[in-house]
């Protein structure tokens, strides 16, 4: 739902909106903050780190790229934070891991090409393993839960409906100064309020009345080729009963197990390390979650079940 950037013909990414908010909305907060008096960090420095738009003709900006993995990588601050935060708010314990140990053992290592990378010391590899297991559990038990997946679909359709209603197209405003003001109106209060006022069409009603689309058929978490083939056949046989197909193949479901580098303890100089999967048998044998599900409208569920019984 992000618009296309006319400069490079690609859709804007959420990080570009974050960077624009930092530069345009948080500028004074960052630059005038008492804690920043000694450092003189500019809002644009922070925005560049988030968006990856490094000023390549500025040497300090180029050197700052070393810290980019702390903002976006398998070990970035956001990922370390959201597992704990989501666990707390969802009332589950799956996402807990030893953050203190991760922070105590984080260090720099060298990649196979001798470039510096963010790594974990050997003494912290079990904490790193715990982080990967926590992510796996949260994906399978919370983020890819069938009810959450149905709600995801309804919310997406609601947003499309509301955007078309407001702007004649299912796209958010551009992340420029004018567009940003409009974009920032799209918070939870605004969208939920419009759903409550019956402005969000059929999918808004689905959310309000909890008549969510139902999952009637699913593969295992890591389906093999035969299972995927079977899924495609079932999907084709159910034809118009299929409301939408949910699958976990999007990149944020990737566990990124082999991106985590383990380096020798207390290394003063960055050293080449080994991947976590070489230390941990559990991580070494983990597979990406690629579960797929077929969802139908609640009114079609019985019909879908009858059709499935005929297929099997």
């Amino acid at each position: 739902m992000f618009p296309v950037n006319a400069e490079d013909d690609r859709r804007y990414h959420h990080e570009e909106y974050s960077a624009s908010i930092i530069e345009n909305v948080f500028r004074d907060t960052i630059e005038q903050h008492q804690g920043n008096w000694n450092y003189d960090i500019k809002a644009s420095d922070v925005a560049d780190l988030v968006s990856g738009n490094t000023n390549l003709s500025n040497q300090s900006s180029v050197r700052r790229l070393l810290w980019r993995p702390l903002v976006t990588s398998q070990l970035d601050a956001d990922r370390c934070d959201y597992l704990l935060r989501d666990s707390l708010h969802a009332g589950v314990s799956y996402g807990r891991y030893d953050l203190d140990r991760i922070l105590a053992t984080i260090n720099l290592g060298l990649s196979e090409s001798d470039d510096p990378v963010v790594a974990i010391e050997e003494g912290g590899w079990h904490a790193a393993e715990g982080l990967i297991i926590a992510r796996y559990s949260m994906f399978t038990q919370v983020y890819f839960h069938h009810t959450r997946q149905a709600l995801d679909h309804h919310v997406e359709q609601v947003l499309k409906e509301l955007l078309i209603n407001d702007y004649d197209r299912a796209e958010f405003p551009l992340p420029d100064v004018q567009g940003l003001e409009e974009y920032l109106k799209w918070d939870d209060w605004m969208v939920l309020g419009r759903i409550a006022r019956d402005e969000a069409g059929e999918h808004g009603e689905n959310i309000m009345n909890r008549t969510l689309y139902r999952s009637v058929y699913e593969t295992g978490e890591t389906p093999d080729e035969a299972e995927i083939q079977r899924f495609e056949e079932v999907s084709a046989r159910l034809e118009e009963l299929v409301a939408f197909v949910g699958n976990a193949t999007r990149p944020w479901y990737s566990l990124g197990t082999q991106d985590l580098m383990i380096v020798p303890n207390d290394s003063q100089e960055p050293k080449r390390g080994r991947p976590l999967s070489e230390y941990s048998t559990i991580v070494g044998n983990m597979k990406s979650v690629e579960q797929r599900r077929i969802f139908v409208r609640p009114s079609d569920r019985d019909q879908a079940r009858i059709s499935l019984e005929r297929i099997f």
């Binding site: 990856g52 993995p69 470039d115 193949t249 990149p251 597979k287 990406s288």
Partner: peptide, 20 residues
């Protein structure tokens, strides 16, 4: 979607596809 790191242009999606 590639962006620049000290180790050059990188996209985590390439490694996710390799995993698959």
């Amino acid at each position: 979607r590639f962006s620049l790191y000290t180790y050059g242009p990188y996209s985590s999606e390439v490694l996710a596809d390799l995993d698959r």
